[in-house]
Each structure stands twice: as structure tokens, then as C-alpha cells.
Design a protein around this nucleic acid. Structure first.
Lengths: 188, 188
DNA sequence: GTCTATAGGTGGATAGAC
DNA sequence: GTCTATCCACCTATAGAC
């Protein structure tokens, strides 16, 4: 695969900036300053900012896919799977940032058309995974809810995405942790 | 009050742009083009962009306060109150936009320090209102949930905020409508 | 692959005439 | 209150040397 170290440094820096300030809230100059390189060098790796954004989302999306598979093979119970899923967002939360896909969704009016399929795929994949966990959990008697598995999946996913917004707005990570617990608890 | 017509046009245009493209995703030139005025004229009403942002959030916040009061006096049942609250977001949804406060929360890393108190106030006010509705609804036997009223309020609020993100990402408003119904239904 | 230098455009903001 | 004209800083992006 593409394991160019400089390239990865650029992506890491860009992702952190994008998740805290939005896609229009940072520039090549910010990345350059952060990793100690010149703007022109970044253009060598990512000719346009759209290229950078596109790669960023794709990396983020496929990284999540791998983590979902990891949870599926590592956690047997539905409750534990949901907890570990929610934990993925908590890892993200640390420094006033939201989900990269959530960020893109918020600025969708300014999003280049080519990125929309990846963005849609991100949420579709998460919905599919969560819906499966909900359905299996209900069948196994581990989860208890009324309505469809899909509806519960969307409550769960939207709750986590919105919870990140709320925690940022309140400047209080505890808000998210409490919400995470409630979302799981009400499924038991 | 300040009912300058041009000023309101500017605010309306800026709000629509901010809710679809983010705060760093539009410029005075965009507003000028949209309402047929020059950039310099906008600076007359709002000397700096921070002034504009600040006023925008404050107007948005106080507008919601008025609507919450209106719901409280107009709707007696807790279920109806929650439905009408959720409806406030649906009105917003029309053209790929999210809650203005949610947008600010997403870009909190780029948000001027002076705006953070208003942003926090927005979510505090909504949480307080929803918590009260939840508590009263449970006491009256209209709502049924386990855990605290506050926890349920945060599930409800985060669900709606996240639902707007999801609907934008999927390019499908029906996603939000369904979610809205589920959030209310699971409280009965 | 990284650099210097720079082009070409747009951002927010100001001065001063009307 | 709105306009023209302009400033300067910053943006994305490119050319070409090393």
C-alpha cells in the first residue's frame, strides 16, 4: 500500500485540523507549519485540496470498516459490540473534535460533488453494521426494543453524532460519556 | 427593536449560507451577490465578520426561546410538545442545512472565544426545556422511560442534531422524519 | 521530494465621495 | 446608507532550481 511517511503526516495533520475547525477552516500553510515542511511540498503529494479531502475521507471510512470488522470478530455479545462501537467515537473526542464524516455532512453545501458518494457510503456502512447488531441482539434476547432494528440503529448513530456536537458546544466531554451510557442502557 | 430591513436581509442570507456551508464557507461577497448590495454596505451594518456571526447566533438563540415558550403555552401534552419541538428542526431541514448552533459546535475549534457562551447557552436552554418536558410527562404518566429525565432529554436533543447530519449525508430528508418519529415513539 | 519564488485570485476591512 | 476604489493579508496552485 501507500505508506509514504510524509504523506501520512500530512493526512494526520489535515485530519486533526479538519475535525476541529472544519474543511474551510484550515489551509496548506497550517499543515506546513505543523509538520515542518513547505506548502509546495504538500502540493506534491496532494495537488489540490480536493485531492486531500477526498483521500482523507476515504482513509477515514476504510479505517472504520476495519474497526467494525475487528469488533465483530472480537466481541461476541451485542451489548459489548455497541459499547465498543461507541468507544470509537470517544477515542476521537479528546480535543474538541467531531467525527470527520459528521463534519463533512455539516458542510455538505460546500462539499465537492465527487465526495458525496464516499460520505453517503460512510453512513450507509455504519447503519448496515448497527442494524445487523441490533437485529441479532434482539433475536438472541440480549437487546430489548420496540420498532425496527434499523430505527434503533439510526437512533444510536444519530445520538452519537449529535452527542459529539453537544459535548463540543458545552465544552464538556462528560456529556458525551453519559449519553453513550444512556443509549446502550435503554436497549437492555 | 432593531428592525432595519437591510440588516435583516443580510442576517437572513448569512444564516442560510452558514447553515449549508459552514461559517468559513461563505464570504461578504456571497451575501452581497445574493441580496444585491455591495460588500462595503454590509460592513456598515456588521463591521467585522465576528460581529455578524455573533448577532446571527444571538438572533437564532432568542428566536428558539420564543418558540419554546410558544409551544409551552400552546401544547398541553408532553408528547405533543416533543413533536412540536422536533418539528422546529424539520422546518430548518428543507435545503441541506443543519441547526445553526450545531454548525457552530462542529467548528468550535475555529470559533471566536466570545461566541462560546452563547453557544453553550443555546444547548443549556434546550436541555433545560426538554428535561422539564420529560419530567412532567413521566409524572403525568404520558411518557414512559427508565433513567433520568435529563438523560432522555440529551438522547432526544442529540438524536435530532445527529439526525440532521445524517439526512444531509444521505441526501435524504426521510431519514430525519423517520428518526423523529422513533425518538418520540420510544418514549411512550 | 523538497525547496524558493511567484502568480492569480479572494478574503475581510477601510477611506472617502455621494 | 450605499457606493467606488483600494489595501493588505492570505489562499490555492504552479514553475523551475536543487
Amino acid at each position: 500500500m501507500n505508506t509514504n511517511p510524509t504523506r501520512d503526516l500530512i493526512l494526520d495533520s489535515a485530519q486533526a485540523l479538519a475535525q476541529t475547525r472544519g474543511f474551510n477552516g484550515f489551509s496548506y500553510a497550517d499543515i506546513a507549519a505543523e509538520i515542518g515542511i513547505r506548502k509546495a511540498s504538500i502540493h506534491h503529494h496532494f495537488p489540490t485540496k480536493h485531492d486531500l479531502e477526498s483521500e482523507l475521507l476515504e482513509r477515514y471510512r476504510s479505517g472504520f470498516v476495519a474497526q467494525l470488522e475487528s469488533i465483530e470478530s472480537g466481541a461476541k455479545g451485542s451489548v459489548e459490540r455497541l459499547q465498543r462501537y461507541a468507544q470509537l467515537y470517544t477515542n476521537t473526542l479528546s480535543n474538541h473534535c467531531i467525527c470527520l464524516a459528521g463534519m463533512m455532512a455539516s458542510d455538505v453545501g460546500a462539499l465537492p460533488e465527487q465526495l458525496k458518494p464516499s460520505l453517503e457510503a460512510f453512513f450507509s456502512e455504519h447503519m448496515a453494521w448497527l442494524t445487523k447488531v441490533m437485529a441479532e441482539g434482539k433475536s438472541a434476547g440480549e437487546l430489548n426494543f420496540s420498532g425496527s432494528a434499523q430505527s434503533q440503529a439510526s437512533v444510536f448513530l444519530a445520538g452519537l453524532q449529535g452527542g459529539l456536537l453537544m459535548a463540543n458546544a458545552m465544552g464538556d466531554e462528560a456529556v458525551f460519556k453519559k449519553l453513550k451510557q444512556t443509549l446502550v442502557a435503554q436497549l437492555k
